[in-house]
Amino acid sequence: MANKLDEEQRKKDAYQRLVARKKPKPRGFRNFVVAFIVGGLICVVGQVVLSIFIARGMSQDQAAAPTLAVMIFIGALATGLGIYDYLGEFAGAGAAVPITGFSNTIVAAAMDFKREGYVLGMGAKMFLIAGPVLVFGIITAIFVGAIHLLTS
């Protein structure tokens, strides 16, 4: 019996090694470059928006919040128009990491689950993708805040 199990395990290991050897590797370099450029361009848009608010007489700190709101709106709009998923397919992390990508995760889930109703569908499942980011983001913030408090 033990021998048979060993045999099974050897077969599995051999096949998993074959798959690991033969399966296509992600195009690392291309993905880095495209993510860098697209992510950078999104940040340029953010910078322009920020500069406009500052030019209209806001301080740097005051301008941050409305800039984020504008970028979140742009991400949501592009998601609603069905563009942002193509950008994600093309640019990977370049589209996912800026706040427009965060906005996309919430709006995409909201759009998807709206069909199951506003309460049990959209309301309950809007944070399906963004939820973990919020949970662990807030927990990390609490720890960092505590360290800051203790060391200053």
């Binding site: 998923d85 994600g88 990508g101 996309n104």
Partner: peptide, 16 residues
């Protein structure tokens, strides 16, 4: 929707 992610989510399809 059932197996992966919301349709409009920005995600890069793996080559596999």
């Amino acid at each position: 929707r059932q197996y992966r992610y919301p349709i409009e989510l920005n995600i890069q399809r793996k080559l596999t």
